[in-house]
């Protein structure tokens, strides 16, 4: 109750401060989501691939998104955007399989950012280890709109960590990784990795987590954001 009130007033303040109309709409939209039961909340599971882990120096390579409507991932509305970068893909190519020539159909960071903000209007973002992805997105959006931007997201990693801690399990190294977390819910192993597949994997994990938390009861959005 209190946390929802606090969140709402924060969003209200951010909306007031925002100069750009699209940003105002985003903050207001987030505010109205907070009153809904989880299954009613339109969500957007996201995943980013980057050239490194530092939002200050590294760049976004690709963004995968898949909307979740009434508890279902809608693959027909899933999207995968490759983003143009300065310099070469370099080392991270071995991890993501994104090669320079793939980047021919990539869009500029500016285009990517306005596309992304448009997609997340009225949607609650979901990511695995969201602070990292949000840091890159906020940096990108801030540069684009020339003012500070703060996004909000459900973090499936944080949910998993809380659940395991509550069961007094010793957290082994790697136990909170996306694949390891999914395995605990019996979700299938996805061999290939790209931003889109990982966004889908993260969305599925969230559905499994919600069902485990709720055990058939309704779950409040604030329980997931805590």
């Amino acid at each position: 109750m209190l946390s929802r009130y606090l969140l709402k007033s924060k969003l209200c303040w951010r909306a007031f401060r925002a100069e750009e109309q699209a940003l105002k709409t985003y903050y207001h939209g987030q505010q109205s989501l907070l009153d809904l039961d989880v299954e009613r909340v339109p969500m957007l599971a996201i995943d980013l691939e980057m050239t490194g882990l530092d939002a200050q120096f590294d760049q976004i390579l690709s963004i995968g998104i898949v909307p979740i409507e009434e508890g279902r991932l809608i693959l027909s509305k899933a999207e995968h955007k490759l983003v143009k970068i300065e310099g070469s893909v370099g080392q991270s190519a071995t991890i993501h399989g994104i090669l320079d020539h793939h980047l021919n159909r990539a869009v500029s960071p500016e285009e990517a950012m306005s596309w992304f903000l448009e997609r997340c209007q009225g949607q609650m973002l979901v990511a695995h280890h969201s602070p990292l992805d949000l840091a890159f997105l906020q940096k990108g959006l801030s540069t684009h709109f020339r003012q500070g931007v703060t996004l909000m997201a459900i973090d499936t990693l944080a949910i998993e960590k809380r659940r395991l801690m509550r069961q007094h399990e010793v957290l082994k190294e790697g136990a909170l990784r996306l694949g390891a977390s999914r395995a605990r819910y019996g979700l299938p192993v996805y061999a290939a990795h790209n931003a889109l597949i990982d966004a889908i994997a993260c969305g599925e994990l969230l559905l499994a987590q919600i069902s485990a938390i709720g055990q058939g009861e309704r779950v409040k959005l604030t329980e997931l954001l805590a």
């Binding site: 508890g71 279902r72 991932l73 809608i74 693959l75 027909s76 899933a78 889908i200 969305g203 599925e204 559905l207 499994a208 919600i210 069902s211 485990a212 709720g214 055990q215 058939g216």
Partner: peptide
């Protein structure tokens, strides 16, 4: 066909 799928999760708790 694959692009038109939607993915859901069903929990034993809801029977």
């Amino acid at each position: 066909c694959c692009k038109s799928l939607s993915v859901g999760y069903y929990s034993k708790a809801s029977a």
